[in-house]
Design a protein around this nucleic acid. Structure first.
Ligand SMILES: [Mn+2]
Ligand SMILES: [Mn+2]
Ligand SMILES: [Mn+2]
Ligand SMILES: [Mn+2]
Lengths: 235, 235
DNA sequence: TTTATTTATTAGATTAGTCTAACTTTATTA
DNA sequence: TAATAAAGTTAGACTAATCTAATAAATAAA
């Protein structure tokens, strides 16, 4: 049985791995994500190594073992199922679900997770567009392309958000954006990449930082695979 | 913000108070209920007194303050709402809900509790027949009379169970009993109070211990008040 | 290739919650 | 009422998770 804290370390390691491929994770990086000091993370990593949930050499990069990865995915599965429950069944808005799911993800009951999954009719994506791992731990490939990659004159579909903070999510709503919306890129400033987009006929300006936090696909893209079109409008 | 552990102490104090009226709680008693040593309970009681959640003199009986009581009732409210959710929405059986609710009762989100309450359509009783406190903390009076109090030849209605353990609940089902069932007391042994009851036309023998764990009302009893009938068949 | 900077580790301390063992106070009973 | 038993408290120790401050190793810059 893993502690609340151990589960959070595994989840953080997994999320960092998703973000930057195969080249292991650093102690400081992990500590930053978990908002603890490197010394603290270092202590915990020793314990996780002892339990064979992570593997690394002293002063080397950290990687999850197969079992560590499975445990981490289970936590993410629970997190996203609970977010979906709060959003779909309890009328929470998409910027409110994350905080509560941070607590709910640590409830230990396999039956509860499976029943919740069934109750929600086996959802594939959470309210932020993130894929929900299934019972076996299989996870749809995460999205890679963002609104910042879309060429001027092209259009795309918003599929997820990268930043899950309540402030960003509320801003997204204010700009008139949401999951599955069609976005046209009207123009882009050379100097600072300030971008004019059109959503449902309404134009707005968004910053580079904003655009990088909106995951999109082009209309020919196959989610999780490369675009079959020879000249995809998205890099 | 109360810790997981502090919440459990308040809940335990409240439950013991419910069980034996106004005469405060003892350290050893509390320790037994929480499955810790008296020394441990003593340490925690000092902290709770410091936070003005309980009140007592050294070597004296312990009582919850108004605010301690409110916090304890909130935990019970959450526990029973979650049990109801698991039972009504996720197809858990009544002997499975308690264990998971022990975890869920510590999730901190007032909004979650209120939304859950609404989602369940403001239930008044949990799957074990126990009353669910409302948002204000108002709690229906607990049941007092048990099957062991019912006179031979009389009948009564089962309204709740005292013991919430999975083994007892499964036994109750095996005997053919459930909440709201009509029970006739056919006979009772003088020697050991072994009782023959009839439920839905089927006779069974139950021990005194068993009978004392089934809360009942007579058909004239008004829940939470005394029976208006001059000669109530239940003491 | 030294030096400086960043990254990682260790040592020692703290807090919450728990324990055992010894001791004190209150309650029971002979 | 005095002896005994039960209930409650204290002292000292342990673990998990955290911190600060000092140190060591690896990397980047000069
Ligand atoms: Mn989230
Ligand atoms: Mn999410
Ligand atoms: Mn329960
Ligand atoms: Mn219950």
């Amino acid at each position: 049985m893993l502690s609340y804290t151990e589960e959070n370390y595994l989840k953080a390691l997994l999320k960092i791995s998703f973000a930057h491929g195969d080249l292991g994770v650093g102690t400081n990086e992990l500590a930053t994500v978990l908002a603890v000091k490197p010394a603290t993370a270092n202590d915990m990593l020793k314990k996780l190594k002892e339990k064979e949930l992570v593997d690394y050499e002293k002063y080397g990069k950290i990687r999850l073992t197969a079992s560590g990865k499975k445990r981490g995915i289970d936590v993410i599965r629970k997190h996203r199922l609970w977010e979906t429950f709060l959003f779909k069944k309890l009328e929470f808005s998409w910027d409110e679900v994350h905080e509560v799911a941070e607590q709910l993800e640590h409830i230990q009951s396999e039956k509860l997770v499976d029943k919740l999954d069934k109750f929600l009719d086996y959802p594939e994506f959470d309210p932020h567009g993130d894929p929900i791992p299934n019972k076996k731990g299989e996870l749809k490939v995460q999205f890679k392309k963002t609104l910042a990659d879309v060429a001027v004159g092209s259009s795309c579909k918003m599929v997820a958000v990268k930043d899950n903070s309540s402030s960003f999510l509320q801003y997204v709503v204010k700009v008139g954006l949401g999951i599955n919306n069609e976005i046209s890129v009207v123009s882009k400033q050379d100097y600072d990449a300030l971008t004019v987009i059109k959503v449902n006929g309404v134009k707005s300006s968004v910053s580079q930082k904003f655009a990088e936090n909106i995951f999109v696909v082009c209309n020919n893209c196959v989610v999780g695979k490369s675009c079959p079109k020879t000249k995809c409008e998205i890099k």
